[in-house]
Amino acid sequence: MVTELLQLAIYGVVLGSILTLGAIGVSLIYGILRFAHFAHGDLMALGAYFSLSLVAGLGFPVWASAPFAIVGAALAAIAIDQTVYRHLRKSPPIILLISSFGIAIALRSVIQLVWGPRNQVYASGIQIPWRFEGLVIKPDHVWIVLGAVVLVAALHLFLTRTKMGKAMRAMSDNMDLALVSGIPSERVIMVTWAVGGGLAAVAGIFLGMDTRLHPVMGWSVLLPVFAAAILGGIGRPYGAIAGGMVIGLAMEMSTVVIDPTYKPAVAFALMVIMLVVRPQGLFKGNA
């Protein structure tokens, strides 16, 4: 029983790492642009498929394809913002949300058009897992968790040590004051999309490594990603880390008592409970 729970906890941390990377992007975008970006899951999927092209088409190892996928997804995010969202900056957030819902659907269609509707994987065959004390750990799991830790650390350094990172925090903190201080909002917004899109790409690749690639993978993971962002207090990227881990662990551990098919319902329930009991998230904040 203990072994089983520990095993599930490992899966939970892996899933939590993936959700965290997605939720940070959602939170950053919400903090600066003040809308819930519903196309974020599909941006993750797009990054995963960029990687697939290099892995399946050119024989890249997955890790080597990641930088290209990060750049690709970042550019895609900026392009979407410049062609669509930018024209809606003065619209109410609700309109941007609907627009991003449309973008989500459009991105999924593009994925189907380019890469086809079937399930795909980066590497066929079964990885030889490591076993100790009855626990099973796949090398991929280790890479996913390590990768997430490195990226979160890098993001932390970016937000606290660089001028642009601080400007992002400033805009999220107090938009009006940022503007009267002369912080160039459009440039910060562009960087925000680049960071959010890049993290989404890695999250998508990890999700593809952990499960498989499918055009609907992004939409399916959107609910847990938002649950993680909300749990952490949306608009606050550091909260997203805690939120991601809690949701990931809860979804995996819940399979002890309920049918695994209903894992998304666990994320949903936690999110709703959080929204009702503590709308500001796990930690107090100003968002």
Binding site: A167, R169, D173, N174, D176, A178, G182, I183
Partner: peptide
């Protein structure tokens, strides 16, 4: 200097000053 909401509340004193000099 606006009357209200005239600092970046989650940032340190030093970071606030830095943001004032962003340009």
């Amino acid at each position: 200097v606006p009357q209200e909401r005239n600092v970046f509340p989650s940032m340190s004193v030093e970071e606030n000053l830095e943001m004032g000099a962003f340009i």
